[in-house]
């Protein structure tokens, strides 16, 4: 609350919450927020703020992929019709670049910086979450497909439900590296299998 109070003192109006229940911080209504700041220190702060807002937005909406060509994603986040400002694609790229540096995002190598995965939760955190779920459900020592983890009946109430394939693969890579699980090649990505060992966790 103290943060909100001190931010409010800076004189920006608060946007109403979105239909999804997400509320942008009032800095989202600050016109210079939509201009790439040429001063390095200012830009660092600006990119940090954008990164945080993007992560919050993606977490709230359980989104994983940022697509510069997907207007639907950009409509609310990067386009503020209230103050008639819009973040340009170059600025978004620059912001994601900053996020990539911090490990909060990763460009899709084939997309030429048009698509990126936003890690609003780190693969390590996902790994811990999935493995604990596996052990709690007694699914260890049996082979699970990626599909079962991401879209299966058992994981419906889990936070990683509908997890993005790339994020899932990263998570599995972390688990394999730790020696907690082993992966098995499948016909396609969804048929890939994974087996969690007892000794883990």
């Amino acid at each position: 609350m103290s943060q909100a109070a001190s931010n409010a003192a800076l004189g920006l109006s608060q946007s109403p919450a979105l239909a999804s229940g997400f509320q942008f911080p009032s800095i989202h209504n600050f016109p210079p927020f939509y201009t790439l700041q040429p001063t390095a220190s200012t830009w660092n702060n600006q990119a940090d703020l954008w990164g945080t807002i993007i992560m919050r937005y993606y977490r709230h909406h359980r989104l994983y992929q940022l697509d510069l060509d997907d207007s639907l994603t950009n409509e609310q986040l990067f386009n503020n019709q209230r103050i008639n400002r819009k973040l340009k694609p170059e600025a978004i790229q620059a912001i994601v670049d900053e996020m990539v540096k911090k490990g909060d995002a990763e460009w899709d190598a084939t997309s030429q910086k048009r698509r990126a995965i936003i890690y609003w939760r780190k693969p390590e955190d996902w790994a811990a979450m999935i493995s604990s779920w596996v052990f709690e459900s007694g699914l260890n020592n049996s082979i699970l497909t990626y599909y079962e983890i991401a879209h299966g009946e058992n994981s419906e109430d889990q936070e990683f439900y509908n997890i993005h394939a790339t994020v899932l693969q990263k998570t599995m890579d972390v688990l394999v590296k730790r020696g907690v699980a082993a992966t098995f090649q499948g016909a396609n990505f969804e048929e890939m299998g994974v087996k969690f060992f007892n000794a883990g966790a």
Binding site: L10, P32, T35, T39, T42, Q46
Partner: peptide
Amino acid sequence: SRGLICRDESVEGLRFFDNLFAKWEI
């Protein structure tokens, strides 16, 4: 350039604002 103010480039031209980025707590 001293980070005291920040800019807003729009169709209306270049406008300078207080650098809220430095003060914002999120």
